[in-house]
Every structure is written in C-alpha cells, then in structure tokens.
Design a protein around this nucleic acid. Sequence first.
DNA 1: GATACCAGTGTTTGCGCAAACATGTCGCAG
DNA 2: CTGCGACATGTTTGCGCAAACACTGGTATC
Lengths: 327, 327
Amino acid sequence: MHDVAHRAGVSQMTVSRALRAPDKVAEVTRRRIQRAMDELGYIPDLGASALASRQSGLIAAIVSTLENSIFAQTISGLSTNVVRHGYSMLLGTSDYSTVDEEKLLRTVLGRRPDGIVLTDNVHTAAARKLLSAARVPVVETWQLPDQPIDMAVGFSNRSAARAMTRALFSYGYRRIAFVGLRTPDDRRGQLRRRGYRDAIAYSDQSPRELFLEAAKPDLMAGATALEEIVERFPETDAIFCAVDILAAGIYFAAQRRGWSIPERFALAGFGDFAIAQAAGLDLTTVRVDGEQIGSRAGDLLLARLRKEILSTATIDVGYKIIRRSSA
Amino acid sequence: MHDVAHRAGVSQMTVSRALRAPDKVAEVTRRRIQRAMDELGYIPDLGASALASRQSGLIAAIVSTLENSIFAQTISGLSTNVVRHGYSMLLGTSDYSTVDEEKLLRTVLGRRPDGIVLTDNVHTAAARKLLSAARVPVVETWQLPDQPIDMAVGFSNRSAARAMTRALFSYGYRRIAFVGLRTPDDRRGQLRRRGYRDAIAYSDQSPRELFLEAAKPDLMAGATALEEIVERFPETDAIFCAVDILAAGIYFAAQRRGWSIPERFALAGFGDFAIAQAAGLDLTTVRVDGEQIGSRAGDLLLARLRKEILSTATIDVGYKIIRRSSA
DNA sequence: GATACCAGTGTTTGCGCAAACATGTCGCAG
DNA sequence: CTGCGACATGTTTGCGCAAACACTGGTATC
C-alpha cells in the first residue's frame, strides 16, 4: 500500500481511504491511485485490514456434513448472498458431532468472524458459552431451536411431519404407518416421529411405528422396512417415511413384489431429494427450501452487521406438502 | 494474550511460544499458561498471528458449483484433510464463470491463503497472472489441465470416455452411439466426446453422435435423446451418455416403451451418481472418486507447505469402468 | 575453574492496515 | 477582508501477535 501511495504521489492513508471510503477522496486522486494499484498489481491485505478495523469480513459456516446436498444448498445460498456484500466464507464440517463442532468452533472463533451460521442446533454447553462470549452474531438453521443462541432460520420438523400425516388422512388413508431409523442421535427423525404421533393422537387410529436398526437411511433399509411393515402391520394403507430415500427403497421393493402404488398402499417421504425425482419416482413428500434457508440466514447476519434492529430474530421458512402420484 | 501472560506471571512472548512451539516452554510454565487461558476464556487471534508470521493458515477453494454433489465431495475430502493439520477452509463459488472466478480470486488472494484449490482448469489470462504473481501453491482438480498453473489432481475425461467405449466394444456391442449436450461451455462433455471418437476411430464403425439442445442434463433430455437415437440411428445396440442423468432418462423412456435393457440396447453413463443407484437403476458407468481428489489435493498442498520437494506435481487418480447389468 | 553450550525466558520491533486526530485549502457569508 | 466551515489529505498510533535477538542461570567439557 505504501508503494501504491508513493507511485500515486499521496500518503498511504489516502490509498486506504480510496479503498474503504472512495467518496472521501477526490475523483482525480482516486483515479491516480487506481492506476497505481493496477500497475503494481496490488491486492489489499484483508487480514491486516481486519486487524486494524476489528472487522474480519468473514462469515463462518459450520455444517454437519456436505455429503447431503441440502446443506450444500444452504451454503450455496448463504455464500452467494454474503459474498455479494464483500464478505468471505469460512467453512467447517462437524460430521454431526457436537464435540467436533466445539473443537471447530475454537479455531473458527480464532478467525474472529463477523457472523456464524450453524446447520445444527444441538451444541455442547462449552460451545454455547464460547459463542456467547465471542459476542458474534449466530444463526442456527434448519430445525428451529427451542432456545436459540441468537437468531434462527428454518422450520419445525415436528409440525411438518404432523402436516404430512394429516394430509394423508385427508386423502382418505387411515392406517398410516411411520418408518424411521433407530439411530439415537437422529434428532430430526425423532421430531418427525413426534409430529406423526401428534396427528395420530387426533385420529381414531393407534400409531404404527417402525424403527430400523440401519446406521444410514438407504434403499436397502427401505426394502427391509417394507418387509417388517407387511409382517407387523399388514393392514397398513399408507407409509410415511422420515426420509425420502427410505420411501424410495420401499417403492422399489413394492415394485419387485408387483404391488402398485398408491393402490396397494400410499407412500410419502420427507425432503424432496432430487434422487426421488431422478428415479422417475413421483413421490409425495415434504419440501423445504434449503437454499432459501442459507440466503435468509445471510440476510439476518447482514442486517445485524448493519446494526439494524431486527424485529424477529427467528424466521420460519415453512415447508410444502407436495402431493404426487404416490399418495 | 497480554492478560494471559500477566495472569500466568510470564511475558506475552512466552504465551505465544506456549501456543506455537510448546516444546520450547518448560512444562510447569506451559501448564500455568494453559490454566490462565482457560480461566480467561482466551482464544488466540489467528488473524493477527497470520499477519505477524506471514502465514495465514488458510486454504482457499474455488468451486464451480456446490449444487453438484461431486464438488461437495471434493471439498469435504479437502477440508477434512487440511483442517486436521490446523488450516481453515475459505470457500468461494464461481458458478462456472471464469469472470466470476477471477473476481473471486481477487478477494480470496486478499486473504493471503497458504494454498488454493480450483475445481476447474479454464481461467482468464488475468486470473492466471494473479495466481502466479501471488506465488501461492495452486492445485487444479478434476480434468487434468494441459498446462497446469502449478499442481493438479484429477483424471482425463477423454481417456475415461475412450476406455468406456472400448469396454462396450469388448462386451460385444458394435453400433455404439454417444449422447451429449450442445452447451458450448461444457468442456467435460467435449472431452468425453473426443474419447468416444478415439475409440470409434480404431473400430470398423463410424461415429453416431447426438447432441441435445437442452441447457441442463436431466431426465427429460434423456427421453428426447432416446427418440432421436431411434430415429437417426435405429440400428444402435449401445448408448453411451456423457452424463449419468441422461442415461437414467433414456432408461426410463425405454422402460415406458416396454424395452428391456440391455436386450434392446446396452446403456452406459458417466459419473456414477448416487441418483442412478438410488433409482435401482443398475447402470454401467465410469466412476471417479471425488472425495479422493479433494483429499489428495490437500496432500499436495500440505507437502508443499512443508517445503517438501514434490517429485510429481500432477496426480492422476484415474477412473473405474463399473460394469453393471445395463451393458 | 574457565569455556562453551543450552534450555528457558524477556525485550524490541514490525507485519499491513485503519481510527483518530491534525493540518491545509478553498469558498462563501457578513 | 475576516472568519468559519466543509472538504481533501497527512501524521501518529496501535490492532494482536511472532521473528529476531538478548539475556539468565545452570550443566557439561576438558
């Protein structure tokens, strides 16, 4: 910067101003400086700028995983939004572990980000303490937390599952089964199950729940699920799966048995993954806009960083029940 | 840090050392410092550290898109690798635009990253200049570039497509058609086409190529492809698609016609996307390990940062022809 | 017992930039 | 013509940390 200043015949401070507050520098001077920067191939050191201004210009995101395309979408939405406003994205992966999240958080906070976005809302006590001590704006995303650390953007898995179950009732189905995974740390699955039970409780039916031992939801798990459903709840006329992929597994397994859907039984999933569509599998499901969640999270952060007073620190982006031919 | 030093009864420098070079600090002192840090909830400022040490501890990745799960995998592999070694990930999205990539590069370089990973190998001249001027280790990934900027990890789309075409010949098919998209900026598709032609040139057959006008590869495009193939090359006994999703589209379209695969014709794709598997669509395809590409890119960077002499700056991770029931 | 050496710690300085304040220059009201 | 304010620019200082060098007391060497 000093070199640029020298070449443009001004002081280093004026160069700094030309960069950060161009309107405080005379037009001609600004152009001279610009030319000097171009000629020297000067690229301002944002790290040093951060140190001096106490604003890092970084937005950190800690996602549970990138394998799942929904979080990738959220990052994409968030990134597009904040990058446009001059921020850079810092990314970390917690692998669904709160302990890893806490560890990651320590390093991330070391970068003094201006904002943090989390895709999970379960944290260690220490992590919560770190975050509040850092006095950094935080947005939790996807499942709306009961006790938000700060801000939140997402929806309620429970109410979405309740809505889907009710929708199945409204389509005329009665003996609705629910399929989930037993994995104890699958909070989403548990919430969706509760939503299912909420709806069942308001009906004349008793719950038909199936929990698979599978570690991961996949097609195989779906196939197993169908077998067990047939055995334990043979009267079932609709199956609601906690995850689309399970529904897909059930679909193909049914196909192999020569059963047609929704004649033999209706089928509903959760997530509206591209997978289902791609498989030509016209699945009734719950859709949540992952990209929008990221984008809105960015909005909240940016507003906060502009010192705006936020009327609502929590945004419910809702969900959509997509009825397709499977139910 | 000053406060921590005071509390531990040492100088600020000793605290710094306890952090960066623990073995240069006496055991007891280190423990006192550790305690002081815990009590104060001190988190070192990595930005300031970067400024003083001239090492940012940042690895930047510029991906074409996150929508596509393969790049998400690469980021995941890269991130896991470098984070373990104390680096943080800076992420940017170029949306397949070399101009956006260049813009992004300017900001990214402002952070003075210790290494950069790119998922594309087409860049503006200015971008190339920026990168070489920055003297930062660079790894280009996926398609191996003809003229690498620095290092590279990936494979050759051309040779992979050639191998697949040859494989189809070896399975006994003769009249092999190729389906791609016309989108001019689809470099990958062009390279795969060349690979196909390479193989055809060594056979007694003439090329049967079909280029769709569709903007994006999807199931619909696949369905259209089948119609055109049937019309223009009715004698075709095998179809090789530049992308799995097209193959899936063809598969379902064939299914609707009551044609069975591979009896009516064989089908091969490229990419081994989870989609195909999920659809229960047992597709013969070319598999490339996206996560490994990211991980190996990390290895190269880390080695370079350790000042190791690299014997090879380019790593070909290869590909696998996966023969399944569709061919 | 002088010399060299080393582990452990402290002091000084500067990384590249921006905040805060200081200075200079001009136009315009009275 | 004076004085005051608005604008444009310069000077000083410090952000939080680590490199480089200086220093201390102890141990090994012969």
